Amino acid sequence: MLICHCNIITEKEIEQAIIDLLDIDPWQLIVPAKVYHSLKKRGRCCGCFPNVVETIIRVTEKYHARSEVDGADVVSHLDRVRGLRVEYGSKFHEGRKASHRAA
């Protein structure tokens, strides 16, 4: 599935970039800008960033669930991040009308 129309980046490419970053340091903070930098791209309209955030959360959860580390801390932290996303992200829709949002 195509996530970023401006840069022609697929969901698989974003997922692989996140896994590559987690392989380097599993506890680093991964944000859309870091993912795009690792792909040697940059956010243009940034309308895809909400979808990239959701992908980061999903891939990070799966990555840590497969690891040997106790997953309870990871899941509780990611639930807090998801809660903040719902609380703050859905309120303003990044300045776009709801009918134009992909997320």
Rank of each mutant, 00 (worst) to 15 (best):
R44S: 01
E15Q: 09
L29Y: 00
L21T: 02
P50W: 00
I14E: 00
H37M: 12
L29A: 09
L39G: 02
K41F: 00
T60N: 07
E15D: 11
Y36K: 13
I18Q: 03
W27A: 06
D70N: 11
R58W: 04
A33H: 12
I57K: 05
A17L: 04
F49T: 00
R66D: 09
Q16A: 03
P32T: 06
L22E: 01
H37R: 15
R58T: 11
A17R: 12
K41R: 13
I19D: 03
P26Y: 05
G47K: 08
I24A: 13
E54K: 13
A33Q: 09
D25N: 12
C48W: 07
P26H: 10
Q28I: 05
K34A: 10
W27I: 03
I57D: 08
S67D: 07
K40D: 13
H64R: 07
I18S: 03
R42N: 13
A17G: 10
I18E: 01
C45T: 10
D25E: 15
E15L: 03
A65K: 15
V31W: 01
S38L: 02
P32E: 05
E54W: 02
D23F: 04
R42S: 11
L29R: 11
K34T: 15
K40L: 13
V69I: 13
K34M: 02
N51D: 10
P26V: 03
I19F: 01
A17K: 07
P26N: 11
L21G: 04
C48M: 14
D25Y: 10
Q16W: 00
K62S: 15
P32C: 13
N51Y: 04
D20Q: 08
K34Y: 06
K34I: 13
T55F: 00
D23A: 10
I56Y: 00
V31K: 05
V31D: 04
E68W: 15
R58Y: 15
V59R: 07
I56F: 03
L39M: 09
I57R: 08
A17W: 04
R42D: 09
G43Y: 01
R42G: 06
D70E: 14
L39H: 07
Q16K: 13
A17H: 03
R58P: 02
H37I: 02
G43T: 07
V53Q: 06
I24R: 15
D25R: 05
V59E: 11
D23Q: 13
N51H: 09
S38Y: 10
Q16Y: 07
K34D: 06
D20Y: 03
G43M: 07
T55P: 01
N51T: 15
H37L: 08
T60F: 07
A65Y: 02
C45K: 06
P26L: 12
G47R: 09
G43S: 12
C48S: 03
L22H: 06
